[in-house]
């Protein structure tokens, strides 16, 4: 049987979606409340790592395919750079050229919100990828060890 017991699997199915929603809240309100792209990205990565620990690698990769995680990782870093270059249109690198909006509202403070989202994509997907690689490596090396023992 792959993964952990049925109790852990059931509770993981209930909880994982809420963890992703909480991480998205931390990211989106990073410029108004404590939080931001780094913390929110790590929280979202934790949700998928929880799925991987409870169900095994296949279920987690069915929710977030490895190729999509690679693309999100690279495009997050690229989006950060592109938003920085957009500032050049107004004068210099990383100038806040977007409209700043009303204070204390969600859609305010110009480029901070898109930068937070880009960082969250980058941090979350890259940590998920690293953990997936570590978990996969352990399985492979263990299988090699067992085959060595048997032969």
């Amino acid at each position: 049987m792959k993964g952990m017991t049925i109790i852990v699997k059931t509770i993981t199915d209930f909880v994982a979606a809420f963890i992703v929603v909480f991480g998205a809240y931390i990211v989106l309100y990073g410029h108004l409340t404590p939080g931001g792209g780094f913390a929110g990205g790590v929280i979202i990565a934790c949700a998928f790592i929880l799925l991987m620990l409870a169900h095994g690698r296949e279920v987690a990769f069915a929710r977030l395919p490895e190729r999509a995680a690679h693309i999100m990782d690279s495009s997050g870093a690229l989006a950060f750079l592109i938003i920085g270059w957009l500032g050049v249109t107004g004068g210099f690198f990383f100038l806040n050229v977007f409209g700043r909006g009303d204070m204390f509202r969600l859609l305010s403070s110009g480029m901070i919100l898109p930068l937070n989202i880009a960082i969250a994509f980058k941090v979350g997907s890259s940590l998920f990828l690293v953990f997936a690689a570590l978990a996969m490596f352990r399985r492979r090396s263990f299988r090699a060890m067992i085959e060595e023992e048997l032969s």
């Binding site: 931001g36 780094f38 790590v42 941090v123 890259s126 940590l127 690293v130 953990f131 690689a133 570590l134 490596f137 352990r138 090396s141």
Partner: peptide
Amino acid sequence: VLTSIVIGLGTLSLMVSMVIRLYE
């Protein structure tokens, strides 16, 4: 420090993967 913490996690994962290679 906020950026330093996340960099610490990234370098930790790099170190752990190096250690796994050494162990193999």
